[in-house]
Design a binder for these strands. Structure first.
Length: 489
RNA sequence: GGCGCAUUCGUCUAGUGGUUAGGACACGGCCCUCUCAAGGCCGCGGCAGGGGUUCGAAUCCCCUAUGCGCUACCA
């Protein structure tokens, strides 16, 4: 039987990084086994629905390079792929469970249930079908009467009293739970929508899903699902419950402690390849002898059996390191055109492709993310607004001004303004006077960039160009120098 | 509270009875050097604890501890 897996998010806003990893593992698994990947939207909670989130989900998944074979955006033979459009199907199956005696009607209101919960000492509440308001306490006739009168009701799963429910998880192995610890789960809500438990079992079966790969938070409800599969007489898909992604303090990854939306990382300028690479390695590792893998390699090497059991902390430092590796190795032209987007977002237009290419080539090794170049080297985009005074104090001597003026004149004479020529000329000047490069290179850097750090100074000068360099030197010597020397006193 | 799952350097992990417990990121040092990076070399640092089983345990079993998840007419 060919592999069919699904990613089934809830349209509640953004794509959670944990969700992305789940989607990724499903994607890897599907591709590796030449199977199908299905996108199914679990929108059975109308109160949590966020307008436009499905489009956003698909957009973000696409950014990450995940392609679906079936889904709401592309259709497919097992649709509809919105659960909200499958209500009759769930209703029919719920009725079937009632008929077979696997489910029953209940009339307790949310308020009544809440009250019962409050009364129990330590969250010990479990639905008691022999004391609450349902078809067992009310009787069949009364039940039908209430239903025909239009009294709201839910359909609950009738969980057997004391039965050991066993199942096998590909990642965790044999797991066993006694049914006495399983609640009579609501399957069909009073608004006619199914709960997750009914909907996912029915859909996974009807959509012929062969492997359920999802987050660990679903592990405790597997017994309910097993009961449902058995009640319907259906085969249970293979199960694989992924470990959770955690905050630095090992709590479940949450909004409070950083960004959890994939969209946030897109906005920060991480590359999709790098982000996917990083996320994929949280909870699974093909060999551990390196950390950079292409998507194709991840697909080829992926094995559910090798996924870790314990949760993994989402560490941005590592993400940055991986992103930096991609930044150092991507083709310059590709980076340059992408860089234009970030540069323009910051309000810098009218920069040539060639200029952006040079800036990226010179500075990419000094930052973790492409847009960081703008903050790291603002002098590439505008004249210095301020000058590092500490840097000035450290490298300025009584003769520095004179040398800078001489070098400025020297630069004016250079026709071929490349880093090599400038370097040679400046060094010639220094050698003639028996001076070291350090005596002028820092003052030059300060005058031209305002900062104490940056790429090689001759390379920087070449990129900025002769006119700009001369302008900046002149401006510094005439306007800035008197000012800061004044301050110094 | 109940039930379930988990536990190898700070972090991500390799490891499936015999290894000096390996790698990467981070951190520290050195080299390179016009600064900052990058790169190279070196270093720091770990099997949660306790019992078993075994000639031998990070690996198998049990207990404890800790963490996490679930315990909704949310997914």
């Amino acid at each position: 039987m060919s592999v069919r897996v699904r990613f089934a998010p809830s349209p509640t806003g953004y794509l959670h990084v944990g969700g992305l990893r789940t989607a990724l593992y499903n994607y890897f698994f599907a591709r590796k086994h030449n199977g199908k990947l299905i996108l199914r939207i679990e929108d059975t909670d109308r109160t949590r629905y966020v307008e436009g989130s499905v489009e956003n989900l698909i957009k973000t998944l696409t950014w990450a390079g995940i392609e679906f074979d079936e889904g709401p955006h592309i259709g497919g033979p097992y649709g509809p792929y919105y659960q909200s459009q499958r209500l009759e199907i769930y209703r029919k199956h719920a009725d079937l469970l009632i008929e077979k005696g696997w489910a029953y009607y209940a009339f307790d209101t949310p308020e009544e249930l809440e009250e019962a919960r409050q009364k129990s000492p330590h969250h010990e509440f479990k639905y008691d079908r022999y004391s609450m308001r349902n078809q067992f306490t009310l009787g069949i006739e009364k039940t039908h009467e209430l239903i025909s009168q239009g009294v709201p009701y839910v359909i609950r799963l009738k969980v057997p009293d004391n039965q050991e429910i066993q199942f096998y998880d590909i990642i965790r192995g044999e797991i066993s739970v006694n049914s006495k610890d399983v609640d009579d789960q609501i399957l069909l809500k009073s608004d006619g929508y199914p709960t997750y438990h009914l909907a996912n079992v029915v859909d996974d079966h009807l959509m012929e899903i062969t492997h359920i790969i999802r987050g660990e938070e679903w592990l405790p409800s597997v017994p309910k699902h097993i009961l449902l599969y058995n009640a319907f007489g259906w085969e249970i898909p293979k199960l694989a419950h992924l470990p959770l992604l955690l905050n630095k303090d090992r709590t479940k990854l949450s909004k409070r402690q950083g960004d959890v939306a994939v969209e946030d990382y897109i906005a920060k300028g991480y590359f999709p390849e790098a982000f996917v690479n990083f996320i994929a390695l949280l909870g699974w590792n093909p060999s551990a002898d390196r950390e950079i893998y292409s998507v194709q390699e991840l697909i080829d090497k992926f094995e559910l059996e090798k996924v870790n059991k314990a949760g993994a902390i989402f560490d941005v430092v590592k993400l940055d390191a991986i992103n930096a590796k991609y930044l150092y190795s991507k083709p310059i032209d590709e980076l340059a055109s992408e860089f234009r987007f970030w540069v323009e977002q910051r309000g810098y237009f009218n920069l040539s492709d060639e200029y952006l290419r040079k800036v990226v080539a010179l500075l990419r090794e000094r930052v973790k993310k492409l847009p960081e170049i703008i903050d790291f080297a603002p002098y590439m985009f505008e004249k210095p607004k301020q000058y590092d005074l500490e840097y000035f104090k450290k490298h300025w001597s009584d003769t520095t001004k004179e040398h800078l003026e001489n070098i400025l004149n020297l630069l004016r004479t250079i026709e071929d303004f490349t880093h090599q020529t400038v370097h040679d000329e400046v060094l010639k000047y220094l050698n003639e006077r028996n001076l070291k490069l350090k005596e002028v290179i820092h003052p030059l850097r300060l005058a031209i960039t305002g900062l104490s750090y940056g790429a090689g100074m001759f390379e920087t000068m070449e990129v900025l160009g002769k006119d700009e360099v001369i302008q900046r030197l002149e401006y510094f010597l005439q306007n800035i120098l008197p000012e800061i020397q004044n301050e110094k006193k």
